[in-house]
Structure formats: C-alpha cells, structure tokens
Write a protein that binds this DNA or RNA. Structure first.
Lengths: 155, 155
DNA sequence: CCGGATCGTGGGTAGCGCCAACGAATCTTG
DNA sequence: CAAGATTCGTTGGCGCTACCCACGATCCGG
C-alpha cells in the first residue's frame, strides 16, 4: 500500500460543477442508505413528498413537479400503489388521467422516510456550522430555482 | 395546458441532500453537454484532470484519486488510449501495474475540455454573485473533503 | 517458500435520467 | 361538427454512473 491513508486530495482548480457532483455523491449515498432501510428509493421519496406538499395530482403533473419523466412515474406509482401508499383513481373529469392520492399509510411511510433522510442529513452536514448550513441551502436554492425555471418549463 | 408556466416550485422543507442532488442535475447536464461536444464524458474528464494534477499513476491509484472504481478505470483508459490521449506502459518495478501517462494530445484535449466545462460553469453559476460563488465552493469543498476522508479511505 | 494482499481485467447489477412510440381521450379550429 | 393537434398513461429501450464479485498474475511479509 504505497500511498495509503491520505492520498492528499490536493484539489487544485476544482470546478464548481465537479464539486457539486462530488458533493452530491455522499449526499445521495447517505440518503439512499437511509431510504433503503425502508425499502424505498429516491424516486419514491420524491413522489411521496410531492404528493404531501402539493396534494393529489395526475401522473403527468407529478412528473412536472418532481422533474421525473412520465415514463418513470408509471413504475414508481405502480410500486407505491402495490404497497398501499398511494391510490390511483380515474379522473371523472378527464378519463385520460389517473388521480394519485396519498393514503394514510403513505403519509406514515413518508414520515418514516423523512426521519431516515434527516439522519443522513446530519451526517452529510456534519462539517458545517449552523450558519454555513443555511447559507449552503440558500445558495443551492438559488441555483436550483434558476435552472428549474429554465429546465422544467422553458426550453 | 392547465398549469403551464410557473407550476410554482413552492419548495417547502427541501432537505439539503435533495437540494444537492437537484443542483447537481443541471450542473452535470451542462457539463455533460459541453464534454459531449468533444466526444467525452465526465469519467474521461475526471481521469485526464487527475493525471494532469497528480502526474502519471497506476490504474488503481487513479481509481483512488478520482473515486472511480478499478473496473471502470479499465474501460475509460481503454477509450482514452484508443484516442491517443494517454499511454499505458507496464511498470518495470511492478509488473502487475500499468503506468498511465498523459500524452501531449491528451493535454491538449484536456485543455479543450477545461474550456468547455468552464463555459458550462458560467451558465451554472449565473444566478450567483462572485462572492456567493466562492462561498459556495468553500462550503462544497468542506463537504467533499470531509466525506472523501471517510468514504475513499477509511471504512 | 507460502499465504495474503494488490493489480488489471471481465462480467454483472441497480438506479437515474431520458427519448420514441402507441392507443385512448380531449381540446382546438376550421 | 368533423379533422387535426395535443395530452395522458403506458411500454420498451438506451446511456451513464456507481457498485460488486471473481479470476489469474504478481508482489510482499513472515
């Protein structure tokens, strides 16, 4: 083992985009690990959270809210419905649509996932002070909102 | 089109880990788009950049430096060698190893990729002031270094 | 000299993100 | 009101990232 422990990241001109990717890695790993403990994935969490925040919606709407592709929504809703976390009911006003509704079990499951992800959170943000955490959230929110406006809608 | 333009992100309790993932999305998309213009992917860029920063190394070392799996390094080095950007030569001191060296063409290619990624950078960071950009980089670096020490080495 | 570790390699898996196409239903518009 | 465009759910597929396991060859420590 020639350069065992440190390997010294050195980290010269590391571009922000790369940094974001690198930071997203442990973030996702930690969140995934927590979610996996409840037999769920990030897609499930995103969908349940969107339902809890915005209320019942069609699958296409859910896709727009979460940025997840229509195709993938199908599989996710299938899995969530199988476990009784959501209900898929035909929209009487538009027979093309399914209205997805969170069940009480789904709400409970989401609460559990929230807890698990929150734990991952603490681990992720361990090296940051409280002030730094809010500042990081603020900056990231700026980025996300900016590119959400350009990515999800326009273009 | 019922809720066309805004869809109003609303963005309640969005957890940092999710925010990071969301922010990494446009970051990676923009970078990928630039890299694709030069027929490359993020893995290629990471490997070339690591070679330029740390100098020649074995494939296993490159894996440790970049956090990329040994198995994946094989495919990437194959592709980079095919295009003449790196050279794979056996290590005389340890016949298990290949020493990967950046060629002049590889250095030129990396410079081109740097330019392309830098463009993506500007687009990514558009909503941030200069001060905010450095602060974001600082915070992300804290996160990455912290979890690199725990992820790449220990455990 | 022998056992354990490391190296390159091949193979496989899972998840995310995306795109093309289809029939059914709806909306638009002439 | 009929014809064309659009939206919806769904199926099937693809590429990239990130992993894992197993193997033979090689090196190293005891």
């Amino acid at each position: 083992m020639e350069n065992a422990e440190g390997v010294a990241p050195a980290r010269l001109r590391v571009l922000p985009s790369r940094l974001l990717g690198l930071a997203a890695l442990p973030a996702n790993r930690l969140a995934d690990r927590g979610l996996a403990a409840a037999g769920s994935r990030r897609y499930h969490y995103a969908l349940l959270a969107a339902l809890a925040e915005y209320g019942p919606a069609s699958q296409a709407d859910l896709g727009r809210r979460t940025g997840i592709d229509r195709s993938d929504i199908v599989a996710i809703t299938n899995e969530l419905a199988e476990r009784g976390f959501i209900v898929r009911s035909p929209d009487p006003d538009d027979r093309r649509r399914n209205i997805i509704t969170l069940t009480p079990a789904g709400t409970r499951h989401l609460a559990r996932l929230d807890g698990l992800v929150a734990e991952a959170q603490d681990e992720l943000l361990a090296p940051l002070s409280a002030g730094e955490r809010t500042e990081l959230v603020r900056l990231l929110t700026l980025l996300v909102d900016h590119h959400a406006a350009a990515g999800t809608v326009h273009a």
